[in-house]
Design a binder for these strands. Structure first.
Lengths: 203, 203
DNA sequence: GAAATATTTTGAACGACGTTCAGAAATTTT
DNA sequence: AAAATTTCTGAACGTCGTTCAAAATATTTC
């Protein structure tokens, strides 16, 4: 049974990620505890460290799942054809909707920090590409003058701007916009960025 | 010596905030430890809990200091007269410069989370007002049609957008823009937001 | 198939952490 | 200066992530 060993290991990993996801979902990232996760996954405390290097890597696997779901939501929300403004509005709206509907899992994506000096593994860095993938095409139509590198950079900036508004709002910070106003403010921001960006291309 | 008691208490608090600030400055928020802070402040471990409710409240006092310095930097960078675009660019540039020059203390402002369910004390909520205070006037000139409430909301959104770009960049995230490009991208964002915002006022 | 060997799983134990609190030290009052 | 009060102290507690010797299980050998 050469396959059993790997299959059991994969099953353990799945149960641990399931349990960690459930844990973050109802207590937040800070409420994730090794003892509770392993109890819910039905394994010993030490087993966690045979499946993953440490708790941080387990969180990264939960985040990978969340990013995949978020990526699918963004892709689904993106109209096949339409004006660049409409596509960007649809993407921003979908991002807001996903963050609101999955607050704790979405928060974990950006709250989580690796210990200082520890670099994020490559396999997980790539998972983040979905955050900007769909932005590039419509933005490119607004700014046909930009080189691919500059375009990608501007897509990152565009994402980060929207993300910032969502993050400060959902964190309930003093400077964050009230959650009830979030969708409207993001729409206004995207509108302003879109119009302003379009103008810049003509200068 | 009625004054001594209060003076000594105030001195202890100051030493603790000094030590915590130094600690965050060279090891980051996650590197802040009660035992090290009290050792550096020259008091017993338990003394921390006679001066502050807990470590979180000590962090809030460090953050209050940082916000005051940041507020001063933003105010100083804000030209007395000039086009709204120029003022907003100056503010954004100063924000980027402060965040870069004080990365760990600035990060602590937004990394720190109170335990779930614990609300931020009012005295510290107000400290955050400096983040948007200087934005309101120039933004109001671009959008004279907005009511004071809507204007304040838009100022929060404008801040959050710039902040998002800075935060993802300085965190070194995959989707963040490289630090070397940060100032340029923020300038482009402010430019686009400003032009777009101005156009919206004419619709 | 049983003994020997290799692998996997286990949970008690470790060190570090934030926080508490009974007693020691210092101060104020009598 | 003795008594009463306040302040300060650091050992001790509970919880955390992580480790690792030993137990349990699986595999190989004869």
């Amino acid at each position: 049974m050469a396959t059993t060993r790997e299959a059991k290991r994969a099953d353990l990993k799945r149960r641990l990620v399931d349990a960690a996801e459930a844990q973050i979902l109802d207590r937040g990232l800070a409420g994730l505890k090794a003892r509770e996760v392993t109890a819910q996954a039905g394994c010993a405390l030490g087993a966690l460290y045979t499946a993953f290097e440490d708790l941080d890597m387990l969180v990264l696997h939960v985040n990978a799942r969340t990013l995949a779901r978020l990526g699918a939501a963004l892709h689904a929300a993106c109209p096949k054809d339409g004006a660049p403004e409409d596509i960007l509005q649809a993407l921003a709206g979908a991002y807001v909707a996903f963050a609101c509907a999955n607050q704790r899992l979405w928060s974990a994506l950006f709250e989580h920090r690796l210990p200082e000096g520890v670099e994020m593994p490559d396999w997980h860095r790539q998972d983040h590409a979905v955050l900007i993938a769909e932005i590039i095409a419509p933005l490119g139509r607004l700014r046909p003058d930009l080189e691919p590198d500059a375009l990608r950079l501007r897509a990152q900036t565009t994402f980060a701007a929207v993300h910032g508004v969502v993050q400060l709002s959902l964190q309930g910070r003093f400077v964050g916009v009230p959650q009830a106003r979030l969708a409207g403010e993001v729409a206004a921001l995207v509108s302003a960025m879109t119009r302003g960006t379009h103008l810049a291309a003509r200068d």
